[in-house]
Simulated assay, not measured.
Amino acid sequence: MTVRADPIIHRTLSALGRRQLPLAGALLLAAGGALAQGSSPGGTLPLVIGQGPGGNSYSVPIQTLLFFSALSFLPAVLLLMTAFTRIVIVLSLLRQALGTQAAPPNQVIVGLSLFLTFFVMAPTFDKVYEKAYAPYAAGQMAVDQALREGVVPIREWMLKQTRQSDVMLFSRLAKLPADVKGEDVPLSVLVPAFVTSELKSAFQIGFMIFIPFLVIDMIVASMLMSLGMMMLSPVLVALPFKLMLFVLADGWNLLLGSLAASFAT
């Protein structure tokens, strides 16, 4: 006996609650769209809707396996197709610039990066929900069409953050036509170009963060050498001064606000 996968996906997403529907629907549609463009030559993903090439439905165990395989792709979508990459790298570089070994800990950095990513991506996720998941849940749109519609807002957001030089680089490596536009490049080209741009932006922001703390380290090291205190660690002495500077300048407010504002809307 075979069953279509649509009710399974619908019940699973509905269990997340209405407040989580924009996020869950956006990530599922993005994962499905990326798989569709990356693995299916026709740009569709028949595995998601539970049908084979000839229109034959898969059995329930196969549908379950395929569905959870799509879910396993969600971490890659969250890491490489959202604002998470830039945010987590900048926060990690901030911790290194401060010189604190484990403060804030990795769990705090990842959690803060995750929720700040949801804040930055909320308008995009809302568009995915309105244009793709809501019509699909209401039975007004097929899954393959919902996938195509759901990927569009995410593609538009990624293109705004991606440098043209990076898109041209990966387009040339993929042997695409020279006159291809950024809106027409496949996700297999857009995603690595987007990640490359995010890494460059993150390290540029990290460089600006390092400068004031590096100045403090140099001043403290020079003072200790002039006083003949060779055995005293400059890092240990400079740490309270760097923490004081960061707190007095309201560093968390400035950094998180600048990070959220650094993404083109």
Rank of each mutant, 00 (worst) to 15 (best):
V189N: 01
S197Y: 01
R4F: 15
A70P: 14
A26V: 00
S39C: 12
S222D: 15
S171L: 07
K175H: 07
S201L: 01
V237P: 10
V152Y: 13
L199Q: 03
V90R: 00
L66C: 15
K175F: 07
T117N: 01
M223W: 06
F213T: 02
G25Q: 10
V110L: 07
D126L: 12
T124P: 04
I9V: 06
F125H: 00
G182S: 13
G32P: 04
F119H: 06
L16W: 15
E130V: 14
A24F: 04
A30G: 05
M231A: 04
D184K: 14
A76R: 08
L94F: 06
A15G: 13
M231I: 08
S262P: 01
A142R: 13
I8R: 15
E183H: 03
D250E: 08
F118K: 05
L91S: 03
G33Q: 02
M1I: 04
I209N: 01
Q145R: 10
S39Y: 11
E130T: 13
L35A: 09
Q96M: 14
S40C: 01
E149I: 11
I87V: 00
L227K: 04
V247H: 11
F67G: 09
K242I: 05
S262I: 00
V60F: 07
Q161G: 08
S69T: 04
Q20L: 11
V167C: 10
A249Q: 14
T85Q: 01
I87L: 03
R4Q: 15
L259V: 03
R95D: 02
T44R: 10
V180P: 13
F241G: 09
M168Q: 10
G251S: 04
T117M: 02
V88H: 02
M141V: 14
V185F: 06
N56Y: 08
F67S: 08
T117E: 02
